[in-house]
Amino acid sequence: MESQVRGGTRWKRFALVMVPSVAATAAIGVGLAQGALAASFSVSGVDFKVTAQQLDGRNLLQYGSVATGKDLNGKDAVHPVVVSGFSDATITKMCQSVVQPLPFGLGDVTMTLKAGQGDQKIEATNIYLDVSELSTDAQFTNIDIGVAAGEGKRDANGNVVTKIQPGADGKTPGGSPYGFAQRADRAVLSNVQQRAWATTAGSFKLPGLSLSLSGGKHECEPAPKI
């Protein structure tokens, strides 16, 4: 079974756009409101923007959670996120930008990281994306919508290959194992634009990596469309 979705969120609005169902978004929102989902680790006070021409991931598990940390003033902050986990993924033409305010009213500085711009693709294993906003064209293969997050994604032999992230103690789940989730054998995301609070991966191979700093706010532009 294959399912294709075209759409996105308005920037500055939290939404689970990868689920082709209004009920799915509502279920995630209820879980967050009831405090059923816990942060997996503390995040910085600044989010970041990522664009990519394509992300091709296998063994998707996607569920709602919250990222907790401190804002730039040191106050407690809670951010609702959708965690998208893949057992492995390839990424084409990725750009990541972080805008960091400088002290003493000196303005902003932007750190920009680019990789996979040529023929070689970025390769990642056990990658989890904690996303607050997303705009993309998505295609899923063998998708299950409405499973419990603790069910994870299993391979042909029944082994769990993608599971809910651990919590801050490294043992208990970082989200409710009974919360709403979806899983799929494969998810291909094209023309990706997202804001995120964290990305973790078991391994991350970045061919052609380049890093630059520039004064002011200069976030990544959308990658060339497929």
Score class of each variant (00 low, 15 high):
157 N>G: 11
65 S>A: 12
151 E>R: 04
34 Q>A: 13
9 T>I: 05
200 T>A: 12
156 A>I: 14
174 G>D: 02
125 T>R: 03
59 N>H: 09
18 M>P: 02
209 L>F: 08
119 D>Q: 10
11 W>R: 14
104 F>L: 11
180 F>M: 06
184 A>R: 01
155 D>G: 04
136 T>N: 06
103 P>F: 12
170 G>I: 05
65 S>T: 07
170 G>C: 06
1 M>W: 12
167 G>W: 00
170 G>Y: 09
200 T>C: 05
58 R>F: 06
98 V>T: 15
14 F>I: 03
57 G>P: 00
78 V>C: 04
81 V>Q: 06
26 A>F: 12
223 A>W: 00
139 Q>V: 14
23 A>K: 15
38 A>H: 15
59 N>I: 11
75 K>C: 08
7 G>Y: 00
205 K>M: 09
55 L>Y: 02
65 S>P: 10
27 A>Q: 04
49 K>P: 00
158 G>M: 08
80 P>L: 06
131 V>F: 02
226 I>M: 15
167 G>N: 01
210 S>F: 05
156 A>H: 10
146 G>K: 02
6 R>N: 15
163 K>Q: 14
116 G>E: 03
202 G>F: 06
35 G>E: 14
194 Q>G: 08
142 N>Y: 05
137 D>A: 11
5 V>T: 04
87 S>C: 08
115 A>M: 10
205 K>W: 04
218 H>G: 08
186 R>V: 02
56 D>E: 15
173 P>N: 09
109 V>I: 12
223 A>M: 01
102 L>G: 07
143 I>W: 02
150 G>L: 05
127 I>R: 06
94 M>D: 07
160 V>T: 09
128 Y>M: 01
114 K>S: 14
15 A>N: 07
9 T>C: 09
46 V>K: 14
96 Q>R: 15
89 A>C: 09
83 V>W: 00
193 Q>F: 07
211 L>R: 10
97 S>K: 07
54 Q>N: 10
69 G>A: 02
119 D>T: 13
218 H>W: 10
207 P>C: 06
178 Y>H: 13
180 F>N: 02
46 V>R: 14
78 V>L: 09
190 S>N: 12
154 R>V: 09
87 S>M: 11
156 A>C: 13
26 A>L: 13
5 V>F: 01
97 S>C: 05
19 V>Q: 12
202 G>R: 11
208 G>V: 03
97 S>E: 04
6 R>M: 07
71 D>H: 13
80 P>S: 09
207 P>T: 12
126 N>H: 05
133 E>Y: 09
78 V>Q: 08
102 L>M: 13
9 T>M: 03
51 T>K: 01
4 Q>S: 12
196 A>K: 03
140 F>Y: 14
101 P>Q: 05
33 A>L: 05
56 D>K: 08
53 Q>V: 14
14 F>G: 00
124 A>G: 10
187 A>G: 03
154 R>M: 07
